[in-house]
C-alpha cells in the first residue's frame, strides 16, 4: 500500500526561518511541498521518511535565501496491482460503485467487476447481488468493503496554454480530472462488504454450542 520514493530537490530557506534548526526547516519545506499531493506515475505523497543528503547552504545573489540541495525519501501511497485493501462505499450509480478511504477518494468498481448476478436497484440507489441460492445481498452506502486493485489511471493536470488549446479545437478549458484514480474489483469470494464474510464462523460456533 505504501512505498518509499527517492527524490532530489532544491530547498530554499527564507531568512525568517533561520531561527529553527536546519533539519527542521528542510523537513517542513519538503512536507509543505509534497504532503498530500500526487506526483504523476509515482503516487500520492504522504510525508518525508528520511533525509539522505544535504549540501552546504549557499546564499543567492540579491535574495537572502539559503539554497540547499537535498536527497530524501518520501512515503507514498501507491497500492500495487492485485493488492487487497479496505474502504467504504461512498456512492453508487448504474455504472458501478465508488469507494473512498479517509485519505483517498478516487476508487471505482465498474459494474463488470461486481459478482455475476449483481444489479443496480433504482429504488434503493444501490447495488444488490442476487446469489445463486436467490438471496439478496445489499451494497449499502458507507458499508466497509474489501476490494482488489486492478488498474490505475493518471491524468496530468498541467494547464494547456491558449495557443495549444486552439490547436486541439476545444474552446473552453477542459474539465480537470483527478490526477490519480484507481479501478478495483469485488468479484471474487471474500471481496465485497466485510460483514458478509467475517460473520459466518461466529454463527457456526454458536450453533455448535446450542447443540
Amino acid at each position: 500500500m505504501f512505498i518509499l520514493t527517492k527524490i532530489a530537490d532544491l530547498v530554499q530557506i527564507h531568512p525568517q526561518d533561520l531561527e529553527k534548526s536546519h533539519a527542521q526547516v528542510i523537513e517542513d519545506n519538503i512536507n509543505a511541498k509534497y504532503a498530500n499531493k500526487v506526483i504523476q506515475k509515482i503516487g500520492l505523497c504522504i510525508c518525508l521518511y528520511d533525509l539522505l543528503y544535504a549540501s552546504d547552504g549557499q546564499i543567492g545573489n540579491g535574495t537572502g535565501l539559503v539554497n540547499i540541495n537535498v536527497e530524501f525519501r518520501l512515503i507514498v501511497f501507491r497500492p500495487f496491482k492485485h493488492e487487497v485493501l479496505t474502504g467504504r462505499i461512498s456512492s453508487s450509480n448504474d455504472l458501478g460503485i465508488r469507494i473512498r478511504t479517509h485519505f483517498f477518494d478516487e476508487i471505482f468498481v465498474p459494474r463488470e467487476m461486481l459478482p455475476e448476478g449483481s444489479y443496480f436497484s433504482r429504488d434503493d440507489q444501490n447495488w444488490i447481488w442476487r446469489t445463486e441460492s436467490d438471496d439478496l445481498l445489499y451494497y449499502d452506502n458507507q458499508e466497509t468493503v474489501r476490494f482488489r486493485i486492478e488498474e490505475e489511471h493518471w491524468f496530468d493536470q498541467t494547464p494547456i496554454g491558449p495557443a495549444a488549446r486552439e490547436e486541439l479545437g476545444t474552446g473552453a478549458a477542459p474539465a480537470l480530472k483527478s490526477p490519480y484514480t484507481l479501478v478495483a474489483s469485488m468479484e471474487d469470494a471474500g471481496l465485497g462488504p466485510c460483514l458478509w464474510w467475517d460473520g459466518e464462523e461466529e454463527e457456526e460456533g454458536q450453533e455448535m454450542v446450542e447443540e
Binding site: L4, T5, I7, I42, I75
Partner: peptide
C-alpha cells in the same frame, strides 16, 4: 528529480 521511483515497500 526522481532518483528512484520505488526504493522499498512499507
Amino acid at each position: 528529480k526522481i532518483l528512484e521511483a520505488q526504493s522499498a515497500q512499507l
